[in-house]
Design a protein around this nucleic acid. Sequence first.
DNA 1: TCTCTTTCGTTACACCCTATAACTGGCCTC
DNA 2: GAGGCCAGTTATAGGGTGTAACGAAAGAGA
Lengths: 213, 213
Amino acid sequence: MDSDVVSPRERYRAQVQAEIKQHAWQQIATTGVSALSLKAIAKHLGMSGPALYRYFASRDDLITALIRDAYRSLAAAVGEAYDSGADIAALAHVVRAWALSDPHRYLLIYGTPVPGYQAPPDTVALSQEIMAVLIGAYREADIPSPDSPFGAHLDSHRHWTPDPTAPTAVLRQALTFWTRLHGVLSLELAGHFTGMDIDVALLYADEVDSLLR
Amino acid sequence: MDSDVVSPRERYRAQVQAEIKQHAWQQIATTGVSALSLKAIAKHLGMSGPALYRYFASRDDLITALIRDAYRSLAAAVGEAYDSGADIAALAHVVRAWALSDPHRYLLIYGTPVPGYQAPPDTVALSQEIMAVLIGAYREADIPSPDSPFGAHLDSHRHWTPDPTAPTAVLRQALTFWTRLHGVLSLELAGHFTGMDIDVALLYADEVDSLLR
DNA sequence: TCTCTTTCGTTACACCCTATAACTGGCCTC
DNA sequence: GAGGCCAGTTATAGGGTGTAACGAAAGAGA
């Protein structure tokens, strides 16, 4: 019932949850999500194994919380940039900087899905929040876009859009923003360019450029 | 010494190895690679646990073999299509068909890397084989490509190319083929378009189209 | 054919992990 | 101050990888 007043217990609980997540991120940053171990986190935290289950019902539960946080972080980064006047190209570079700052965090969202994992509904909302920013930026950019079968298809399949007033061409551009940049980023983060000795930033810039034409 | 003659023991060994891989693929197809269990495979095969270690030194060893096979399969699919006269667009659709026929196999190669995994040198060769086909197809297509910083950079960073005589513009186009199509494919396979009710084939076709201009 | 050696497969074990159950001790509320 | 709630503990079940030691079968050479 108490909306403002938070009991000391809840405060403590929230703090421990935050500490757990912090150590989880630390672990993920080095080993990736698949090697995330609750027991190891507990050890680092000075408490023993099963105690963690008071805070997260399961490993998947913790991962879900991390995914949620990652989405929130990306949405915030993109949203803040947009609010400070960033255009499409600037947004693209914000996304890349965010991805490179913690590759495993990016891969947690956009990488190979964890076997059992089901996306909770609110991550869809966060995903739409990001999409809404892209749509806003593309509306302002006002880039012409030729007709295509997919464009026509999208005209009748746009119930997912966070902005019903956005032109279909803009939706298409926002989707392409997503797929093209993810294409470069995910290959880069997965290490598929290592050995080629390529400056991926320039390749990325080329793709960003392609999104403005 | 015997180059042609294969001893019965080696025959048997090769066959068991093949059976193990077959069950491994079956398991991966349903649960993904991260849940691959040697013990479960052994059970299915009617032998008990540690026996598998006679055939694969470790779990990573088995996964490496699977990755090798996946690369070989993709290289073969692309190569055969090219030899039958496929152009860029046709090759793109071969790649998509191959990916959709076994999503986890695609993700095994191009998805989030397994924490400890190191790519063996011969997969690089197979990867170059695929690249060589793309380069060949793009040489025939003869598509003009405007200058860019990345193009200039690539001029002096092309030691990785399987075809030293290929124009830099072609290398760039082959790279873009890779990144753009992977962008759509990986998001599709990871389920990021579910809920949008989009016909991804059309979105893919749009991107294929972008590769020809 | 008989023996020696190599290889296969077994069980036993050490050591990781997730997750549950049962129990203890402390804090908060009434 | 008494009782309930909750954090954290150990014990345990059940899964996984991988090693060690042993038995059994199959091939090679005399």
